[in-house]
């Protein structure tokens, strides 16, 4: 087993283990966020590969799709679920921006490392900050959808919800 497959295996395992940390009463919310994020990544993932912006030399289902199935089907949508569940809805604007940025940064740094040292992903016409920005935008869109879907009120109110 080479380095790339080992990383894929570990990420798969960690992604499944992480499901245990979704609170039992939040599964509905988590699943909607998961499916919505899949809907976004499926399209955008195909687009980036089709336009030769990125390539994933080592991947699953290599003959069928040239995108990373793990990242688009499983990993990033589940990250989206966690993002929504723990979003600091009633906190200040600064905290929200910091929270979203923290997610983007902690996904971008490993990607840059993986890009430099392994064959899992190669940037063709791509830069790390485009990754960061696209993560920020997709997470923001996810949150807007999520807030609408569950009719959440974002303003801090004296009567706390839940």
């Amino acid at each position: 087993m080479n380095m790339e497959h080992m990383i894929l295996y570990i990420v798969y395992a960690c992604t499944f283990i992480s499901l245990a940390y979704i609170p039992k009463n939040k599964w509905r919310e988590a699943s909607i966020a998961y499916f919505f994020q899949q809907c976004t990544t499926w399209f955008l993932g195909l687009l980036t590969v089709e336009l030769d912006l990125l390539e994933y030399p080592v991947r699953e289902f290599a003959n069928i799709n040239e995108t990373s199935f793990l990242f688009e089907f499983l990993f990033y949508p589940i990250v989206g679920s966690f993002f929504c569940i723990y979003y600091p809805r009633n906190k200040s604007m600064g905290k929200k921006i910091l929270y979203t940025s923290a997610f983007c940064t902690s996904l971008t740094i490993p990607e840059v490392i993986v890009e430099s040292y392994t064959n899992l992903i190669n940037y063709l016409k791509w830069e790390w900050y485009i990754t960061w920005l696209s993560l920020y935008i997709t997470l923001k869109i996810l949150w807007i959808f999520y807030k609408w879907f569950f009719q959440l009120n974002e303003k801090p109110s004296p009567k706390a919800r839940d």
Partner: peptide, 18 residues
Amino acid sequence: YAGLLYSPIRFFEEATTI
């Protein structure tokens, strides 16, 4: 993957065979 579905004309021709 199992060779049971095939689509000759599609969008994203390079990126996917689905």
